[in-house]
C-alpha cells in the first residue's frame, strides 16, 4: 500500500513541478530567441572570403532531465508504440537551449554570425534502459569583424 502511495506521490510531484519547469523554460526560450534573432546560425562550412575576419570556436551545452511523470508516460508508450511526445519536448528544449547559449557566447565576443554549426546529443544516465537525461552540445565558428 505504502509503495503505491509513494508512486502516486512521485507521479503527482513530477507532473506538477515538471509541467511548471517546462512552461517556464519554453517561455524563456522564446523570449531569448527573439532577442538573439539577429545572429544567424548556418550550417555552411565555407564562409565568404571577401573580407578578413577573426574566427573563434563557440559552444553551448546543457543537460536536461525529464520528470517522473513523463518517464512513466514514456514507459506506457513503450507498450503501445508510437510517438513519445514527452521525450520529443525534452530534446527540443535541450537543443534550443544549447543553440541559445552558443548565440549568447557569440554576442559576448562581439560576433555577428555562426558558421558550420553542429549539434551533438549524448544520453547521460544509462540506468535501467531509460533516457532520463540528455546532454546537447552545439558548437560552431563565430565570425567577428575586426574593428
Amino acid at each position: 500500500m505504502a509503495e503505491i502511495l509513494i508512486f502516486v506521490a512521485l507521479l503527482a510531484l513530477g507532473y506538477g513541478f515538471g509541467r511548471h519547469a517546462e512552461t517556464r523554460h519554453y517561455k524563456s526560450i522564446i523570449q531569448r530567441e527573439a532577442a538573439l534573432r539577429d545572429i544567424p546560425v548556418v550550417t555552411t562550412k565555407f564562409p565568404p572570403l571577401d573580407h578578413p575576419v577573426n574566427a573563434e570556436l563557440v559552444t553551448g551545452s546543457v543537460v536536461i532531465s525529464v520528470d517522473y511523470f513523463k518517464r512513466f508516460l514514456a514507459a506506457l508508450r513503450n507498450l503501445a508504440g508510437g510517438r513519445v511526445t514527452s521525450y520529443e519536448s525534452l530534446l527540443d528544449r535541450a537543443r534550443r537551449e544549447a543553440v541559445l547559449r552558443m548565440k549568447q557566447q557569440t554576442l559576448n565576443l562581439g560576433g555577428h554570425i555562426i558558421f558550420n554549426v553542429k549539434l551533438e546529443t549524448a544520453s547521460i544516465h544509462k540506468g535501467r534502459g531509460s533516457i532520463g537525461s540528455v546532454e546537447v552540445l552545439a558548437y560552431g565558428t563565430a565570425l567577428i569583424h575586426p574593428h
Binding site: 512521485l10 510531484l13 513530477g14 513541478f17 515538471g18 519547469a21 517546462e22 523554460h25 559552444t59 551545452s61 546543457v62 543537460v63 536536461i64 532531465s65 525529464v66 520528470d67 517522473y68 513523463k70 518517464r71 537551449e97 547521460i124 544516465h125 532520463g132 537525461s133 546532454e135 552540445l137
Partner: peptide, 23 residues
Amino acid sequence: MASLKNIFGGELKGYTELLQESR
C-alpha cells in the same frame, strides 16, 4: 541532486558544468 531532478525534471546544472569543464 541529479536523482532529485529526475523526479522534478529540469536542467542538471552540476552536470552541465562538469561536462563543460571536462570539454
